[in-house]
Design a protein around this nucleic acid. Structure first.
Lengths: 339, 339
DNA sequence: CTGAAAGCGCTAACAG
DNA sequence: CTGTTAGCGCTTTCAG
């Protein structure tokens, strides 16, 4: 057997050791500020490392330490400001905790399962958001004992979950709209596409039922402005026309607003529209919507995950955490009298 | 010397080998579809692996293969839709190429340099965006021979660069605004904060100079709506008031629009406003702006990086690529007569 | 076709 | 305080 001699090119700890005239153990210690080295030696090693522009291999270190010092997050997509904010909150907390961050958007890809499993092998713990992968993949990862947190997703076995409040606020929205005198409702969005949408629809339905108003069937629709526009155009062509279109998120609502304009209808006089998310555009479009603590969702998930990682061996608590959301009234749902 | 016995818990290739009654080499081969194993053996190994819920350790594999199969991307921040879109494009291409993605937002953190260096040790190549770290860090990473691509940033030595067109389109914008008859310009944004802003300001200045219009000093301002609002409020209080406020990006412009509204000024009759980015909100705010191929910027950077990684040992070409941008005229810059 | 064993770069006992 | 050395989990010669 001979050396394999891969065409590696990074400077290794051996070269630094040789240059500094010490052993690799001393280099390792010196570079990590161990107390077990003379300031003198430390300096010599430091100098040698600097001269060689040496950075320790993360692979070697992780393998020896038995940890990656990295967290992952998987989400269905990154389109629209929603996911980005969540990822931002996640990254921020992870960075503070000194952990690297791996991301993967599944985009409904065929090999999503494999990619997520791959990520599971690279991290000390991960967050899975929404319906990015099937339950059996989640279960399989959970079975390995890897720290795991589900975000905006229905619980799977005893995995920790973090999500925004949907039900209560959706009921509140229903009550508010009924208060405007509306009776013909439409719901734009596919409850089967995301747990959050299911929760919003359920809350709306419950609120309407309480008020004795007919509950509309949901109109499934992709999460894009364009899709919202065309679906809403169809809805607005119905007779009798719905008096209010409750949309599963702001992008759809913005599309509905566009459709209403194209149909020559005034909002809210002819048709009212509501969204969900409170994107920046919602403000400029005067859209009534629900504000979600997106960044905080990501940050919270990161903290829960970290707790699990630190608490190894894992004690799955199945903790469920729900973050509050807030109804934001603007002009698109109807005219509000001041005072 | 004894075994170290870390409290590792993952199933290893040894256990699979034992269970399948073969050597670890055979397991390794079987699981990676090597031709060198009987279908029979392969099946036996597969079964054993499945029963044990085995996933090969990425660390072990990477260390042995001498590659991470991961790419990194560093950006200054993730606030606002701009960066998210870039990251999305990057992730998408990286995923197609079978590579994991590491992200890091520096947020102007003090330890940004160390974090970026850390990432450099975890990936086979990385993209550095805007002013996320200082030139010397870029140079240092480049010196290690790690494949590197700069995004929306001034070139450093011979590192490949990808960026959006700023100068030409900014000149075009200047000409258009001068065509509206405007002479008193203001520029909101800090050219020192981002190379893109510097390019936009330079282009605007050049365009104005050509037209014989006085070039305004830039008004430095953070990249946030609120900051834009207050800076614009100050500008609008000046006498004589600027006739048009050219903003470094849409968020600032949206803030300027808000400020104008609060000051009781009509846009564009009393003051015109332009942005840059073409966020979704820009459309609903009627904002004249410049559309950038954000997703394509990320995707292009990912491809360039991949080329470098595949072409190892690296041959730095210092290739510079500029992606086109497009002026989008809406109502905020002035009234346009049809036809 | 399969197995034995040598590393990949680093950390951490252990023995000086 | 410092050096020696045994792994960490996997891939890959090299021999059979």
């Amino acid at each position: 057997m001979k050396a394999l001699s891969k065409p590696r090119e990074g400077v290794t700890i051996y070269e630094v050791a040789k240059r500094a005239g010490v052993s690799i153990a001393t280099v390792s210690r010196a570079l990590r500020d161990s107390e077990l080295v003379t300031p003198q030696t430390r300096e010599r090693v430091r100098a040698a490392a600097a001269e060689l522009n040496f950075t320790p291999s993360r692979l070697g270190r992780s393998l020896a330490e038995g940890r990656h010092a990295a967290n992952g997050i998987v989400f269905p997509d990154l389109v629209g400001p929603y996911y980005a904010e969540v990822v931002l909150g996640y990254e921020q907390v992870a960075a503070e905790l000194g952990r690297s961050v791996l991301i993967r958007a599944t985009h409904g890809r065929a090999d999503a399962d494999a990619q997520v499993l791959e990520m599971a092998a690279r991290v000390d713990g991960m967050v899975i958001m929404g319906r990015s992968v099937a339950d059996d993949v989640v279960a399989r990862i959970a079975a390995t004992g890897l720290p795991l947190v589900l975000l905006s997703r229905d619980p799977v076995s005893d995995v920790d979950t973090v999500r925004p409040e949907n039900d209560t606020t959706a009921r509140e929205l229903a009550r508010h709209l009924v208060g405007h005198g509306y009776r013909r409702f439409a719901f734009l969005g596919d409850p089967a596409a995301a747990p959050d949408v299911a929760g919003r629809y359920a809350g709306l339905a419950a609120g309407l039922k309480e008020a004795g108003v007919r509950v509309p069937d949901p109109v499934p629709c992709a999460f894009e402005l364009e899709a919202g526009r065309s679906a809403a155009a169809g809805l607005l062509a119905c007779r009798p026309r719905p008096r209010v279109i409750v949309c599963a998120n702001d992008e759809l609502a913005l599309g509905a607003l566009t459709a209403a304009g194209e149909a020559g209808l005034r909002v809210p006089q002819d048709v009212a529209v509501t969204g969900w998310d409170d994107l920046m555009a919602a403000r400029f479009a005067g859209l009534t919507t629900v504000r979600q603590p997106m960044r905080e969702l990501g940050a919270t998930a990161a903290r829960r995950l970290h707790e699990q990682i630190e608490a190894r061996p894992a004690k799955r608590t199945g903790r469920q955490e729900t973050l509050p959301t807030e109804l934001v009234l603007r002009t698109s749902c109807g005219t509000h009298t001041m005072g």
